[in-house]
Structures are given as C-alpha cells and as structure tokens.
Design a protein around this nucleic acid. Structure first.
Lengths: 188, 188
DNA sequence: ACTTTTGTTGAATTTAAATTCAATTAATTT
DNA sequence: AAATTAATTGAATTTAAATTCAACAAAAGT
C-alpha cells in the first residue's frame, strides 16, 4: 500500500501548501502553478490530485467545517473562563500549530466576500455563532456578561476574533493579545 | 463646462458603483462588465474613464487614504469617550452614509490579502494605528484604559472594528453593536 | 525480464475576462 | 447646417491563467 499512502500524503501536502498560500496571498492571487512549485511538483500533476482549483478550495473548506469546530463545552466551566481559555489556545496555535491557526483564518476569509459562491455557502454552513449565543445567555444569567442582544454580541465577538487573527496572520511579529481584552467586550 | 462636469459626475458614479460591488463581491469577483452594467454604460466606455481595472481600484484606494482618515482629535475629550463617539458615528454611517461605511470596509479589505500589491501598499500607507496608540497611552496615563502594550491594543482595537464592520456589511439586517462593547476591550 | 499500471512532465489548448478598436451617434463650435 | 470634436457601442483581439494531453519514467505485478 505504499503507493496509495504516498498519494494520500502528497494530497495532504498539496492541501497544506494551498492553505498557506491562500491565507498568505488570497485565493485569486494564488496560481495553481504557485502551489505546484511550492509543493513541489509539476503544474499538470496537480490535476491528478484535484480536478480543479475550485475543487481544491472546496476540499479545504470541507476540512475546515469538520476539525476544530468540534469544541465541546464542559458545563462546569463558567462561560467567561471557557471563552478565555479558547482564545488562549487558538492564539497560541499561531506559533505552535500554524495549521490550525491558518485554517481558522482561512474559514473566516471564505465566509466573507471574494470567493466562489459554493465555497462560501459550505463555509457558512459551519456555524460557530449559535453555540456562542447560548454561552453568552448563560453568562448573562450568571451575571458575568453584560446585558444586550446575545446574538449580536456573539457575532461581534467572533468578528473581532477573526479580525485580530487576520492581523496576526498578516504580521507574524505582532504580539499575541491578551484574551481577556476580547472577553471584556462581553463582561458585565 | 457641462461636458466636463458630466464626465466628472460619471467618473464618480463609476467609482461609487465599483466601491459597492467590490465590497459586496470582492475585487476579483467583480467584472468590469458588471460595473458597466450597474452604472449603466457599455463595457468599452469604462476604459475612457479608467485605463484599467487596477487603475480604478487604485483611484478608490487613493480616495480612501484621504477622506475620513482626517479625524481630528480634540484634546479636551477623554480618549475613551472619543473612541466611543467615533464608533458610534461610523456604525451609524452604515445606514445613513453607506458610502463612508463602504469605504471604511473596503480599505480594510485592501490592506489585507488578495489584492494587487500596489493597492495594498497604498492602503497600508494610510495608517490609523499610530494616532490610536497615542490615544491609548494617554488613556492609560489617565487610568481609564488597562495596562498593556499600547501598540498591540490599538491594532486589536482596529482589527475588531474592521471585523465587526465587515460582518455588518455582509448582513445589513444585523443589529448595530453598542460601541461601548468594543471600547471595553481597552478599559481598565 | 516483460507487461501493465501509475506517476510525472512540460508544452499545447481552452477559457474567461480585460482591453482595444473601427464604426456610429450626439454634442459643440463655427 | 456643416465641420469638428467627444461620447458611446459592441464585436474583435489580447492576455493570463486554468486545464488537457501526448509522451515518457518508475513502480508493481506476472
């Protein structure tokens, strides 16, 4: 099975290379030839692994809708502590697990404009907001979070996190922010 | 001078139409033909107004580097109050002055990835962070802002604002957030 | 060792969009 | 109202990148 394994490994290599380049330069500014050169392999061979540039994009988005979204919430932890911990780990991933970090940034980019329609739809189907709305409501009940429309608060929270992560992604030198800053948006 | 005036008006119409479409769909997903159809005018005529798609983009970025960046700070207002007021007005622009709001979102997009290099450079030259760093330091001295790296705080602040504005831009139904939420990121 | 299957390349083709252009119409000037 | 100049169109051309393909190389199976 060495043959199949090799192919699968190469497939992953392509996906990771593409993820990095997409996050670094954006989807449209990344040529199939760029990805091929970075892997490295010939341009033509790319099409033995993915039928088209868009299929490659969709594959990445599919990966993004699965993995790190499955963060399970432990009922014993207070909502504010939980979110702080979450931010702490995702920010630390910037250096320790660039893959996870890049995927996070990438998914946020796909959800916004400037991507093929289907990719956007798929990315939007993985909804991070709804669980957070519940968390915020719980925090409001406990008195740790301020009053206000929980849905809007959740969306602002994630929009902020996305914005900050894109900033970190664009400048690797940037100091990691204190998660508390962002959670403070929600605090009572 | 009716002739020249007409031309200038049309030029502005093209710029505004392009701004809207770029923000709505992104630069690469917006065809010259789309802009022409929306103005409306023929595709070919577009090139009597702008030599290329990229020049049109650059023209918009140039506009963006001038206008609303010139927010003057009145020394008598406390930094936290000032930022709250600023957010309040920019958020209210979403409905009242879509043009200003769109430009703000657009500039943020251009500064990030997925745009022709020159446009990005030009957009990055209009720096909103430095003045905010000063403002934050002042707030820290006054005790209204928390301790911490002022530069990182400023960048996080604007990254959050950008993220939230893009969210508002993508969903016009979204409720406007309370500026206080975002300023709370900075508060002591 | 031979045959078949799979991987690989780089050049040729296709495609979609930007850009040009020759022809047409409308406005302005004389 | 004829002549000149500017605006406008839509079809033809160019361009840049994606995609295909014929030929070759390496590996696996016999």
């Amino acid at each position: 099975m060495t043959r199949k394994e090799q192919k699968e490994e190469r497939r992953q290599a392509i996906l990771m290379t593409a993820l990095t380049l997409f996050v670094e330069r954006g989807y449209y500014d990344t040529r199939i030839a760029d990805i091929a050169a970075a892997v490295p392999m010939s341009t033509g061979l790319m099409f033995h692994y993915f039928a088209s540039k868009e299929e490659l994009l969709l594959e990445l988005v599919k990966m993004g809708t699965q993995g790190p979204g499955s963060v399970k919430y432990d009922d014993k932890i207070p909502p504010d502590v939980y979110l702080t911990m979450f931010l702490n780990s995702i920010f630390s991933f910037a250096k320790e697990q660039p893959w996870v970090f890049n995927m996070f940034v990438f998914m946020g980019q796909v959800r916004r404009v400037g991507m093929p329609e289907e990719a956007r739809r798929l990315a939007l189907s993985a909804d991070a907001v709804t669980p957070t709305v519940k968390l915020i409501k719980k925090g409001q009940k406990l008195g740790v979070f301020r009053k206000g429309n929980a849905d809007t608060m959740a969306r602002c929270f994630w929009a902020s996190v996305q914005g900050i992560m894109e900033e970190m992604s664009a400048d690797k030198e940037m100091k990691t922010p204190d998660p508390e800053w962002i959670v403070s948006m929600l605090r009572a």
